[in-house]
């Protein structure tokens, strides 16, 4: 009888129920994920400096991340430019009949925030899902275990090239996206509000702080997306269902990372350079 009890005691306890227990469990998972992400980030940086040199693979992923996203990103950023200018113009006309400052405000907002943030949200879905799906399939088909058996660190082989490629290409794509939105925005202002492109393309409100904030955001997003999705991919388990789950997690977590970094960087830049 007493032996039966001993065996029962060794059985893993049932999952915690109740709000506090679940909150605690969520918090623990959150902290652990944060530590794992930090670990992968540090290892990626280490391998960027000390790892294998493989320009071929970095160029390949630059093509994957960059060139193959250009069309998608151009469509999205083009529509963003048109929507912003149209909605902004309509609202502006409700209180002020003068649209001459619309272009300047639009360009300021675009350079400081929208080009980087909307572009990165799009890249988080496209690039993030791609990275997690690729690495996840490799984990499920035991190719990552094979790498580990050959004493090759998966972070060095799989995450590092994608990290460097994404860092470079996110900056390029965000600048390209800003250019596309500016063009479509200018055209929309000209067609719908009869605003002269020379009046619209007014850079007086854009200063170095805006440009700096935008570029810092690009770098932060470009670094965060491959790390978060690489982590989701490496944590895959359980067949094709697992790959699907990992991809979902990569998209959700990298989008959340982009939104969170946006809030932090925007707040810091506003406190540093008010007005």
């Amino acid at each position: 009888m007493s032996q039966d009890h001993a065996i029962e005691d060794e059985v893993t306890p049932p999952p915690p129920t109740g709000a506090v227990a679940r909150l605690g469990e969520e918090a623990l998972t959150f902290v652990q994920t944060g530590r794992e992400l930090y670990g992968i980030f540090i290892r990626t940086l280490y391998f960027c400096v000390r790892g294998r040199r493989e320009p071929g693979s970095i160029a390949f992923y630059m093509h994957e991340v960059g060139n193959k996203s250009v069309f998608f990103l151009s469509v999205v950023m083009g529509f963003i430019g048109m929507i912003m200018v149209y909605q902004g113009g309509v609202q502006n006309l409700r209180i002020l009949p003068d649209l001459s400052l619309m272009g300047a405000s639009f360009l300021e907002l675009l350079i400081r925030d929208l080009a980087a943030s909307i572009g990165a949200l799009m890249l988080a879905t496209r690039v993030g899902a791609g990275i997690a799906a690729e690495i996840g399939s490799m984990v499920v088909t035991e190719q990552v275990d094979a790498l580990r058996m050959s004493a090759a660190d998966p972070v060095d082989y799989l995450v590092k090239p994608r990290f460097i490629a994404s860092l470079v290409m996110t900056i390029c794509l965000c600048i390209w996206g800003a250019a596309v939105s500016t063009i479509t925005g200018t055209l929309t202002a000209y067609v719908y509000f009869d605003l002269n492109p020379m009046t619209f393309l007014n850079l007086t409100l854009v200063d170095a702080a805006d440009l700096g904030t935008g570029l810092v955001k690009c770098v932060a997003y470009g670094a965060a997306i491959p790390i978060v999705s690489g982590h989701a991919g490496l944590a895959t388990h359980g067949g094709s269902e697992g790959v699907g789950r990992a991809t979902t997690r990569a998209v959700v977590n990298s989008s959340l990372a982009v939104i969170f970094l946006n809030l932090v960087i925007s707040a810091v830049s506003y406190l540093l350079f008010p007005g």
Binding site: F79, T125, R126, A129, A133, S137, V140, T141, S240
Partner: peptide, 30 residues
């Protein structure tokens, strides 16, 4: 085509939906 196929399909879905959402946003706004 197995697990890699699922990954590719998920990727294609999120890209197609995101682009579709922005195009629709424009059309509805106008």
């Amino acid at each position: 085509g197995g697990a890699p196929g699922v990954g590719k399909a998920v990727n294609a879905t999120v890209v197609a939906s995101a682009a579709g959402v922005f195009v629709l946003d424009y059309l509805v706004s106008f």
